[in-house]
């Protein structure tokens, strides 16, 4: 009896989960960074405009 299916299943499961966890973390970070940048851009522009109009 060969044990190859057990070995393939164990490695496949581990590598698959590592790829899912790593990719989801990277995508979530990229999304969060983009949303934060989009929100901070107008507020910085507002504060700059406010500062310029102040006497």
């Amino acid at each position: 009896m060969t044990h190859l299916p057990y070995i393939v299943a164990a490695y496949g499961m581990t590598i698959g989960l590592a790829v899912i966890l790593g990719t989801s973390a990277a995508l979530r970070l990229r999304r969060a960074r983009a949303r934060l940048a989009a929100i901070e851009r107008p507020s910085r522009a507002d504060s700059r405009a406010g500062g310029a109009s102040a006497p």
């Binding site: 966890l21 790593g22 973390a25 990277a26 979530r28 970070l29 999304r31 969060a32 960074r33 949303r35 934060l36 929100i39 901070e40 507020s43």
Partner: peptide
């Protein structure tokens, strides 16, 4: 550790987004 740091950075940024909104 790399996955945790990435998730934690994302969580901090999401929290900042929620506060800003």
């Amino acid at each position: 550790a790399a996955i945790l740091v990435a998730r934690l950075r994302a969580a901090v940024m999401e929290s900042r987004v929620r506060t800003a909104l």
